[in-house]
Amino acid sequence: MPILEVHNIEKHFGKTRVLEDISFSLEQGQALAIIGSSGSGKTTLLRCLNFLERPDVGTISVNGDVIFDASDPSTQKEAEVRRKRLHFGLVFQSFNLFPQYTALRNVTLAKELLAQEQPDFKSRKKEILDQIEKEGQQLLEKMGLADRAGHYPSQLSGGQQQRVAIARALALHPDILCFDEPTSALDPELTGEVLRVIKGLAENHTTMVIVTHEMAFARDVADHVIFMDGGVIVEQGPPSQVIENPQEERTRHFLERYSNG
């Protein structure tokens, strides 16, 4: 059974249709890359998965459970949406770290707030908080940032900030980790460190959806590639097909433009 199933998603902003009939599925441990030019609807699709936008039509299922159905308001209640969001993690293009907290606190904050809702939080407060901090340290270590735990975002380079953001998303153990053009806001010499981290996650079979402009990276990392244009999926399949041997004219045109810079 696929871990993520998106069926027939449609989204309008006013009269503009930004997503139309989007359907795909993703298996546990696989990485999906979404490619396409600016304005093709990639980011909106990712935002729909994270409940930052509500699709007008369609369903989203995780592990076989329908967590969103546009035609069923009972799946859209605010309190439940909050819980459902936790199936997904999202790494933003512009990091969106909390500037007033250290790298470590950025990673641990949300988990601490969630832990406060546990019935035994008061009696085991110290133990729980210590555990969360320890996990946060380990995640930063995994991102190669053990010595930056006490730094504030403004004291970190773009690449380091993005790695903190990845650790922050991983801290909540999402089923599916989403990346919205994670290297677009970085200087070219800093993209490598972030891409290496994501590649490492793929090797460890983290389920991921990655919106990216890095074609070589998509080809190397993804198990499945979706090419979008004008709000629709033009072509999808393994990277060997979509990127190396595209069947559709539009995909070929996009990739040609891309390789010509």
Binding site: R82, R85, N96, L97, F98, P99, Q100, L109, L113
Partner: peptide
């Protein structure tokens, strides 16, 4: 305060109240 701050809070499962007090307020004060 950039809307990305609020969105970051939302995707981390925070309530609107938590986002205001833990994320937005101090940035606003500054």
């Amino acid at each position: 305060v950039p809307s990305g701050q609020q969105e970051a809070g939302l995707v981390l499962g925070m309530t609107k109240r938590q986002i205001f007090f833990k994320v937005t307020l101090l940035q606003m004060v500054k």
